[in-house]
Design a protein around this nucleic acid. Structure first.
Lengths: 336, 336
DNA sequence: TTGTACGCGTTATCAG
DNA sequence: CTGATAACGCGTACAA
């Protein structure tokens, strides 16, 4: 005994499937009596419409796909949370796709998502390579970039201005009197979350008349361990006069703080640390981390809103979201 | 100009849709020449089969749904990571559903998932209430519980033995010489992750001839803030002789450590803290947290494996996953 | 080896 | 008001 179909309902109610469909979709054209009869039978049978069949004729699946390079961190959790929330409000479902930064997996997922007829794709935090773009365009699937953007292709995106946010973080340190600031960057050469943040750092130093010293830069990978490694290296080379470090992610900042603890460096008394993202992790470390915030959840919501608009209108404008500096206890002013 | 269908391919290739279908599905019954011709046209047109239509006839959607009470934390990220990974390997897609611990949302999602014809559901970390169960049973959707279980209903689940894991954590403290141990529990009355862990704590104390004192128990909600609040309260009431605390989640343990920092209590010298879960957060706090580990990713993988088995065989056995104690720096032996 | 035709569960168009 | 019936895109017996 399989699931009841609209036909089972129509038979048992003694009406045509057309009529059942009408009451189901709240359309006009039937007497109160038949409506009640139909509703009655639907209840008895425990009938539920098959959204798949519906989608086939409507050419609408009400689902979108979201592609992440990795899924286990506060950063993506926050983003995902906003995405799911907004999607749910718009009666959309979301397929999660973890590409693991792997090209093959990404292309495979692009293919699968297309076959599953998703109405659009949210491409999160990864570089939009040519094959991805070609595939996306060829399949005519609307998509928007989240927390990333493309220089090469005209694709709508939502992100904060990394350069400015980074500048703000360093400026904050500068205003607190720091003059010997190191930076633990994200992946070297990363055109999205890497270089722009380094640029912001460099620009801030320059605007305060300070030199940019390559030896005060460490290139990590946004992860905790690389943050710790970065702190260690920076400390080793500048233990004489390093008073603050700016990490391009909260995780790296946490790693840096952890390294300080092992190295016997007191934060923030001896070393100020400022992070980037302001994920929930920021307030969980000791001492609580001061960081520039990216409004992750809001970005997630904005992204689906944009995607849906793109789906119906065929175009949308990109959005630059506001960053914000949230002060906690990991930065201390230099005593003069 | 819409997406090409199998019919477009058949026309252009000068064959019937049946033939196209056959080559598409790697079946027998066509000459090498026609096969090549068809493949050729498919390529030219950039044709991709419509999985939705396929599913309609096959009665197979190759998608499952996973329901979380919340999505933004390391705990769920890890679980989700394992789930997505395993699903992907089995050519399944997963819909994420954040119920936000909300009954209405949960029931709504159950309904939607059913309409979307998911083949099964993973119900994570939440209490299986009667209406959920009724709905699930009525819709004949296979489902397995993850990191939770039901006393009332016979539903397959995958989780660790909370009581034993909890016992192990406290025993570890005991073996380190601690005799004045406080506990920061999860939600009071929670039959899954609450009570059992308290029981394990109580049992361990008892087995070591120690009394269970209600004043050394604090009931939080698994979150960071409640962990900090718990530490503060415990400290206020037992500052004379509290040497260790067992937190029922890493986040609460992190909160406790954070509170110690504010209170000027040194961890682990003055206070040992042990957590539960061993999420990535554990190694990110200062000092790194010693904790009992739940193999979250593996649990996620096991869960989809079980679900798929349940789907095909109609039944599966529940699985109790192994816990493990991982030592870091937040616990110190009592000097005697 | 290949094509015809029916069915999957719905929606929607037209008659009646 | 209500009921056939043609799509939707594809798989598959059954024929040829």
């Amino acid at each position: 005994m399989s699931k009841p179909t609209i036909r089972d309902v129509s038979k048992k109610a003694g009406v045509s499937i057309a009529t059942v469909s009408r009451v189901l979709n709240g359309q006009e054209g039937y007497s109160k009596t038949t409506k009640e009869k139909v509703l009655q039978v639907i209840h008895e049978l425990g009938y539920t419409p098959n959204e798949i069949a519906r989608g086939l004729v409507n050419k609408k699946t009400s689902t979108i796909g979201v592609m992440f390079p990795t899924v286990s961190s506060f950063f993506f959790s926050q983003l995902l949370s906003g995405i799911e929330e907004a999607a749910q409000q718009q009666q959309y479902n979301v397929f999660i796709c973890n590409t693991a930064k792997n090209g093959e997996r990404t292309e495979k997922y692009l293919q699968v998502l297309r076959e599953k007829q998703v109405e659009g794709i949210l491409f999160v935090s990864d570089f939009m390579k040519e094959p991805y773009y070609e595939q996306l365009i060829a399949s005519r699937m609307p998509f928007v970039l989240v927390s990333t953007e493309s220089m090469r292709y005209p694709v709508p995106f939502v992100k904060v201005d990394d350069r400015k946010a980074s500048y703000a973080a360093v400026q904050y340190l500068l205003e607190k009197g720091h003059r010997h600031i190191g930076m633990i960057s994200g992946t070297q050469g990363d055109p999205i979350a890497g270089t722009p943040r380094v640029e912001g750092y460099r620009q801030a130093l320059e605007d305060y008349g300070l030199p940019f010293e390559a030896s005060r830069m460490y290139y990590g990978n946004f992860g905790f361990n690389s943050g710790a490694a970065g702190m260690e290296q920076l400390w080793e080379q500048h233990r004489d006069n390093l008073t603050a470090v700016f990490a391009a992610s909260d995780e790296m900042a946490a790693g840096a703080i952890s390294a300080c603890y092992r190295l016997g460096i007191r934060v923030p008394e001896q070393m100020s640390v400022i992070g980037y993202d302001n994920t929930p992790l920021a307030r969980m470390v000791t001492p609580p981390l001061t960081a520039v915030e990216q409004p992750l959840e809001q970005m997630g919501k904005a992204a689906v809103k944009m995607l849906l608009e793109l789906i119906v209108k065929g175009q949308v404008d990109s959005r630059i979201m506001p960053y914000q500096l949230v002060e906690r206890d990991s930065v201390q002013a230099i005593q003069t």
